[in-house]
Write a protein that binds this DNA or RNA. Structure first.
Lengths: 239, 239
DNA sequence: CGGCCATTTGACACTAGTCAATGTGAGTGG
DNA sequence: CCACTCACATTGACTAGTGTCAAATGGCCG
């Protein structure tokens, strides 16, 4: 067992290909290592940052699972995303120097803290980092376009199918089974993300199970018929 | 009348405070002027860029009005935003070097073409520009969070009220009346943006009119009771 | 002036929401 | 180790809000 004192650096982090640019030379790699000033553990249920908090850093998720949510004045809130290892949260804070959403750990988690000042400084000198930062933000914009499409024009079954496929695909990219997953969030949180009530989420799961498309045991999901799920998510794909 | 040959530069563009950073010295201003290589006119109904097209530039809108929309495989499409003078479109293209949505002019328009390579180059040297680019992208992310809240948890009346208030506020910031506006988009486009069918949009307009909250004459809208609209958009604000 | 597209309005259908009761597991403390 | 508790999940019955389909109206452009 490795001694605890080894500082895990980006340069030898096994998530590097997920959260950092790939085409770096040795010198650039060394400098990237300086991006992460500290790491921070976040207990399940605790907030990484919250609405109104001063923005200082972006956070790269090392382990664990987060949700981000925005709140309306009247108390309703909307989950805007679920984030897992290798993904970056905190981008919402840049524009007004204050965060506009809450990031809450859905399981014990650890994040790399990257002061934004330092990111900007370094990305002036390392072109690959500059490009990378731009891509991360653009990717988030494109992801949100997809969510808007989902919320604006899909029905409950389609939404849940798309959600499961997306989750499975991201987990698969991280080395997990492409067909078996454990949900880290409640039905209510899924519903909030998908613009549905928790009862509807539950019913839709049950329907998928009846149809033999997925197996549902609480939060343990096994995708039995991925093509059928695909088809649910994009219903009228045939012409 | 000024001669046509005068090249309008960012440095003396009346939209500067909308689309460019403010705190620039003379030298930086001169360099920013080099960002815009050309201007491009887009006729009403024409596309500025479309899904799948190679990404090269961001576009700052000088005049006119655009919609951006993403398309699902099955033909459905979702309007992801309406953009007006001083706003920037094209950010979706950065992540994959190809655009993932269509930008279509809703009235004759003119845009400033800003090659992204040049933006990146210059923002390495002009800190204010770097910061500005980051803010523009972050602002778009935050805007989309708001749309997700709207699509995920608001009812038809609330959505339309929020939409009208947002449009009015943006137009007001551009020197137009805060209470009188001309919609540049159809009911169907509004519906697509708000996740509603065009009939629902129409009915909701009619209801607002009956209630004396707005006056609706085709696409001419006059807001008669802004507080009431505010209240519609944030229904349970009282405790 | 005519044709066309956008809009409005009505009647009805259906999806998802609401409210309520019941079931299930994970974790806790006796 | 077991019973208890609590949060989460499931299911049913009913309802409200939008969608769907269809018809009529109104403006605008050629």
């Amino acid at each position: 067992m490795k001694p605890q004192t080894i500082k895990v650096a980006c340069s030898n982090c096994n998530l590097r290909e997920l959260c950092m640019p790939l085409d770096l030379n040795a010198e650039e790699l060394r400098r990237i290592d300086e991006l992460v000033t500290t790491r921070r553990k976040v207990k399940r249920g605790a907030t990484l940052f919250h609405n109104g908090e001063k923005f200082n850093s972006l956070y790269a998720i090392r382990t664990g699972f987060f949700k981000t949510c925005v709140a309306a004045e009247d108390g309703r809130d909307q989950v805007t995303g679920f984030q897992m290892a290798g993904e970056v949260v905190g981008l919402d804070g840049i524009v007004n120097d204050h965060h506009t959403c809450n990031a809450i750990a859905l399981e014990d988690a650890e994040v790399c803290v990257m002061p934004f000042e330092r990111i900007e400084e370094l990305s002036r000198e390392v072109n690959a980092l500059q490009r990378h930062v731009h891509k991360i933000m653009s990717r988030e914009i494109v992801r949100e376009h997809g969510v808007m499409l989902l919320l604006g024009s899909m029905r409950a079954e389609e939404r849940l199918a798309a959600f499961l496929l997306n989750l499975a695909q991201r987990l698969h990219a991280r080395g997990f089974s492409p067909s078996e997953l454990v949900l880290r969030m409640t039905r209510e949180e899924i519903g909030s993300y998908l613009g549905l009530k928790l009862e509807t989420v539950s019913r839709t799961f049950s329907k998928f199970a009846e149809d033999g498309i997925v197996e549902v045991r609480q939060r343990h999901i096994r995708i039995l018929d991925a093509p059928a799920l695909q088809h649910m998510a994009h219903p009228v794909a045939c012409h």
